[in-house]
């Protein structure tokens, strides 16, 4: 379980996160919906330990990551895997090297298995620049799974993909979460993805979580922002 309390983050005097309070239930898929540019990716970066919040706490298994030294924090954040919006594969490495990068025990069999799971058999020696957007996303998932994280963070995993490829990525996310029994947190503005695999939902707007709950509570909510987001209307 991830518990976020009163999380603040400011860039150049502009507050992006303004006191986020939120709980991500364990071994489930939680979706954070929100318009582009509201700071959803910033929230993920705080959880992954890539950036440090200005204020507040992020607790994983009741340990506050923000109060730990950097060395200890990295031991905890090492169990978190993140899929970045642009895949973030290392350009200078082949796909095989990308996958092997994070493996503690490197073996060809494990690399091949990871590639097979995402349908990229035979792509071992290709470079990221030789792959399409969907293939890159799948290779990034293979890299993510290779070090078996307990917490999976996905930043807009289907953005920029055609509907068929997006569907493949959605299935892969679901399979990955199930096989690892991991806690997954997905930030997106893709309602198709959200409705298909989300178990718990939250709406992020104006730097705070406006509403959260399970599928039924969330989609039946009368909250104007939720209704506006679902119907695609402008916020009243």
């Amino acid at each position: 379980m991830i518990t976020i309390r009163n999380l603040w983050k400011t860039y150049d005097s502009t507050p992006v996160l303004k006191g986020i309070n939120f709980i991500v239930p364990p071994s489930s898929i939680t979706i954070i919906l929100g318009r582009s540019g509201v700071g959803k990716s910033v929230l993920l970066k705080q959880i992954a330990g890539i950036e440090q919040p200005d204020q507040g706490s992020i607790e994983i298994e009741n340990i506050d990551l923000c109060s730990l030294s950097e060395h200890k924090r990295r031991q905890y954040t090492a169990q978190i895997g993140m899929l970045f919006q642009g895949s973030a594969l290392f350009d200078s490495m082949t796909i095989q090297e990308n996958i092997a990068f994070a493996m503690t025990e490197k073996s060809q069999a494990k690399i091949d298995e990871a590639l097979e799971n995402v349908g990229l058999i035979g792509f071992n020696n290709k470079y990221p620049a030789e792959l399409s957007g969907g293939q890159k996303r799948r290779a990034a998932i293979a890299r993510l799974v290779a070090y078996k994280p307990k917490i999976l963070l996905f930043d807009e995993p289907t953005t920029g993909l055609d509907p068929i490829t997006a569907q493949q990525i959605i299935s892969l996310i679901q399979e990955t979460q199930r096989s690892l029994q991991a806690t997954a947190l997905i930030v997106t503005h893709d309602l198709v993805l959200a409705e298909q695999i989300g178990e718990y939902f939250a709406l992020h707007d104006e730097g705070i979580i406006q509403i959260s709950g399970n599928r039924q509570d969330f989609f039946n909510s009368n909250h104007p922002l939720v209704q506006a987001f679902i119907s695609g209307r402008s916020v009243p």
Binding site: G49, G81, G86, A88, F90, D91, F101
Partner: peptide
């Protein structure tokens, strides 16, 4: 280039 394409962040998130 690695910084702006989030490769540095990815490295960090993998504990390196």
């Amino acid at each position: 280039s690695m910084r702006v394409t989030e490769q540095v962040d990815a490295m960090f998130s993998m504990g390196v």
